[in-house]
Simulated scan of single mutants.
Amino acid sequence: MASKKRIGLYFGTFNPIHIGHLTIANYMVEFSDLDEVWMVVTPHNPHKKKSTLLDDHHRLAMVRIALEDYPKLKASNIEFGLEQPNYTVNTLILLEEKHPDFDFCLIMGEDNLKSFHKWKNYEVILERYSLYVYPRVSQGTIETQFNNHPHIHKVNAPIMELSSTFIRKSIQEGKNIRPMLPETVWKYIDEMNFYK
């Protein structure tokens, strides 16, 4: 029997998606054993203040246009229909039900691994799914239980110190941040007059 297709799930608000996200996702699919990476756009939590988060469909549209030239990278809106607040474990179960032929894995930054023990049902996630962890400059230490764990794979991706917060702030200040975004995303933001 052919082995299942391995799908890495890269969660984020992608507000907006930038070259840091793209670099990590592409590195994961080219330099690990993942067959595809799905960028899972996290919906706005109705219980939280709206602040600077663009509407779900705009963030999804930007992810879709950013990935047009990358056939191994896909945009996913799987969480849009889920009750909020949602937990990753629920998304994983839903994806498994919808796609029983795929083997799903989680992609996360080292900063998230440091707080992973606080996630809802993190033991279940770790028991059933692999984690692909990329380096991030961050404070704190990784729990000893996660060191040398057979389901945690450290991938030596480039360290990307670019954040969507920085990009939004820079646009507001009238800075030219065009090289930090995929060209199609930059045009979309510019035409829609977002983050100004």
Results as ranks from 00 to 15, higher is better:
Asn15Ser: 13
His18Leu: 06
Glu173Phe: 06
Thr13Met: 04
Thr23Phe: 01
Thr88Lys: 01
Tyr134Met: 12
Asn112Gln: 14
Lys74Cys: 04
Arg136Leu: 06
Pro16Trp: 04
Pro46Ile: 04
Glu127Ser: 14
Asn121Trp: 10
Ile125Leu: 09
Gly8His: 03
Ala157Met: 06
Tyr129Thr: 12
Pro182Val: 08
Ile189Thr: 07
Ser32Tyr: 08
Ala66Ile: 02
Gln145Arg: 14
Glu143Asn: 15
Thr88Ile: 04
Tyr129Trp: 12
Glu30Ile: 02
Lys118Pro: 00
Asn148Val: 01
Pro158Met: 09
Ala66His: 04
His99Phe: 15
Leu53Trp: 03
Asn193Leu: 07
Trp119Gln: 00
Phe116Lys: 01
Met108Gly: 10
Ala66Val: 06
Lys74Asn: 11
Asn112Trp: 09
Tyr129Ser: 09
His151Val: 02
Tyr27His: 15
Asp69Lys: 13
Asp56Glu: 14
Phe80Tyr: 11
Ile65Gln: 09
Leu126Cys: 11
Leu9Gly: 08
Leu181Asn: 02
Val41Gly: 01
Asn77Ala: 12
Asp33Ala: 05
Tyr122Asn: 00
Tyr134Ala: 10
His18Met: 10
Leu95Pro: 01
Arg178Leu: 07
His18Cys: 07
Val137Ser: 11
Val185Glu: 12
Leu22Val: 01
Met28Ala: 04
Asn193Gly: 15
Met39His: 04
Met192Tyr: 12
Cys105Glu: 10
Phe80Val: 00
Met39Ser: 05
Glu83Phe: 05
Asp33Val: 06
Arg64Ala: 10
Glu96Ala: 05
Glu161Arg: 10
Lys154Tyr: 14
Cys105Gln: 12
Val124Gly: 00
Thr184Cys: 06
Pro179Asn: 06
Lys120Ser: 00
Ile142Gln: 05
Val155Trp: 06
Ile93His: 10
Met108Ser: 09
Leu126Arg: 02
Gly20Lys: 09
Lys49Ala: 14
Ile177Gln: 07
Met108Asp: 06
Asp69Val: 02
Thr52Phe: 09
Ile142Ser: 03
Ser3Met: 13
His47Gln: 06
Gly81Tyr: 05
Tyr134Trp: 15
Leu53Gly: 03
Ile189Gly: 05
Asn176Asp: 15
Leu113Tyr: 11
Tyr70Ser: 09
Glu83Ser: 13
Asn148Lys: 11
Trp38Ala: 07
Pro179Val: 05
Val29Leu: 03
Asp190Leu: 08
Gln139Lys: 15
Glu30Tyr: 07
Lys187Leu: 11
Ala75Lys: 02
Ser51Trp: 07
Asp111Ile: 02
His151Asp: 03
Leu94Pro: 01
Val29Tyr: 03
Asn90Val: 00
